[in-house]
């Protein structure tokens, strides 16, 4: 990090990332067309997360950022997953209360 103002990325890197993102988009379409049952959700999200990481890492230059910046970005996404997870903790465990039958 001698001269952090000038991390000039070659155009080819950007183009490769761009192509990878396009391929992922096509891939996610065909993955959704096929029926993998519950797995469909995971595949779709895995591809979306991959694409997001590509954008974060190359376009948003996280690879040349300070640790503090990376930590900030990670904290944001972590908190989002925390929120979704704790919400699902409630909704995933909503079930009818079964009262014990007397005499059994």
């Amino acid at each position: 990090m001698a001269e952090p103002q000038h991390h000039v990325t070659p155009v080819s890197t950007y183009v490769y990332v761009f192509l990878a993102l396009l391929v992922c988009t096509v891939l996610t379409y065909f993955a959704a067309k096929a029926d993998f049952g519950l797995l469909n959700n995971f595949i779709a999200m895995a591809i979306a997360i991959t694409k997001a990481l590509l954008v974060l890492y190359f376009f948003m230059e996280l690879r040349h950022s300070t640790r503090m910046t990376v930590l900030t970005a990670a904290a944001g996404f972590f908190w989002l997953f925390l929120m979704i997870g704790l919400f699902l903790m409630d909704y995933g465990t909503r079930m009818a209360v079964v009262l014990p039958v007397p005499g059994k």
């Binding site: 988009t25 996610t28 379409y29 959704a32 067309k33 096929a34 029926d35 993998f36 469909n40 959700n41 779709a44 999200m45 591809i47 979306a48 694409k51 997001a52 954008v55 974060l56 376009f59 948003m60």
Partner: peptide
């Protein structure tokens, strides 16, 4: 940074909204 972030939001919106009933 802002522009790419808005892109990332769409990257998640696309499969969630358009593709979930595709199969």
């Amino acid at each position: 940074l802002y522009w790419h972030f808005v892109d990332i939001v769409w990257i998640f919106l696309f499969p969630l909204l358009y593709l979930l009933g595709a199969h």
